[in-house]
Computed example of a mutant assay.
Amino acid sequence: MKYFVVFIFLLFSTVCFSQNDTLVTNIKGTVINNETKLPIGNVNVINASRVKGTTTTASGTFEIAAKVNDTLLFTFIGYENVKVKVTNDWIKEKITKIYLSEKTYVLDEVVIPKYNLTGYVEVDTKIIPVASDGYRFNISGINLGYEAGDKSPGAVSKILGSIFNPTDLLYNVFGKRPNEMKKLKAMKKDDTIRNLLATKFDRVTLATLLEIDKDDIPMILENCNYSEYFIKTANDLQIMDAISACYEDYKILKKNK
């Protein structure tokens, strides 16, 4: 009987611990400049696991819903991004300090090409090169159309050939990542995340939120026939919307096959 009571107690303790381990609760913290040791306000705090975001107050404090093993992403202009795992100690103590370090920039030499302009608009517009990327083609039955690098007749054929390719290259991108695509939909609804991505051009934040490799993003967009110019110049919010639109179009095409 004694051993039975001990067994029941241990079993009950294990169940309680497991429940606490998966419990979503509000955790608090303070974001601090690693060099000056002063708090940093307006830092974006994103729970990448739950696709929820907030910002720090003027005194550097924040509060966000999380559970053990969730990944929090801290990002602020001019500072290195920091990813932190939520631990049991953080849940118990309720508050912790996060340190951000300022980025160090090394600027490359900038060479400005010389153009011999005449002063006549009709002539000068032909002298100055204009980027020819970014043409989009609307295809019946698809929401937004597809982009290609030129407007030659062969460009449309290339797009159609890629979309209806029997090997379904897009399945390798989207079909194997259903969880990431669900998170993508959640990200589109969160204003904090959308506003953050609108200021980003490095793909790091977007890749972290989708839990994919940063180098996969150009591959995804290439399979969706977005031009090299768009892939290089769009901000992370535009990239997110492009991936989302391509995914929805892919589902329509897959369903109609």
Rank of each mutant, 00 (worst) to 15 (best):
Tyr3Asn: 15
Lys97Gln: 11
Ile64Tyr: 01
Leu72Arg: 00
Val6Arg: 05
Gly175Trp: 01
Phe74Leu: 03
Gly29Gln: 11
Glu147Cys: 04
Lys92Val: 08
Lys257Leu: 14
Pro113Glu: 05
Val106Thr: 11
Tyr135Phe: 08
Asn225Thr: 07
Lys83Ser: 10
Thr14Glu: 13
Ala131Asn: 12
Glu122His: 02
Thr87Tyr: 05
Glu211Pro: 05
Leu72Ser: 00
Ala198His: 11
Gly141Gln: 06
Gly141Asn: 15
Asn195Thr: 12
Thr208Arg: 01
Leu221His: 04
Asp150Val: 01
Thr96Glu: 15
Ile252Trp: 11
Asp168Val: 02
Val173Asp: 06
Glu180Ser: 13
Leu73Thr: 00
Ser140Leu: 12
Met1Thr: 15
Ile163Ser: 07
Phe17Arg: 10
Ala65Leu: 07
Glu180Thr: 04
Asn33Ala: 01
Ile127Ala: 07
Ser101Asp: 05
Thr57Ala: 10
Leu206Asn: 02
Met219Glu: 13
Val110Cys: 10
Tyr115Arg: 09
Glu211Asn: 15
Glu180Arg: 00
Ser157Glu: 04
Asp190Cys: 04
Thr14Leu: 09
Ile95Arg: 15
Thr125Asp: 13
Phe4His: 11
Ile142Phe: 15
Ala66Trp: 01
Asn256Leu: 13
Asp249Tyr: 01
Lys182Cys: 06
Ile98Asp: 08
Leu206Ser: 04
Thr205Asp: 07
Lys52Val: 08
Glu35Phe: 13
Ser132Cys: 09
Asn69Gly: 10
Glu228Ile: 15
Asp191Phe: 13
Gly53Lys: 03
Leu23Cys: 03
Ala48Ser: 01
Lys158Cys: 07
Val111Phe: 09
Ile220Ser: 03
Thr61Trp: 10
Met219Asp: 14
Tyr135Val: 04
Phe9Gly: 09
Asn143Tyr: 12
Gly78Asn: 08
Asn81Arg: 09
Val45Leu: 02
Lys83Arg: 02
Val45Tyr: 00
Lys52Gly: 10
Leu170Ile: 10
Ala207Ile: 04
Ala242Tyr: 07
Met187Arg: 06
Tyr247Arg: 03
Ile40Ser: 11
Arg136Ile: 06
Asp190Met: 02
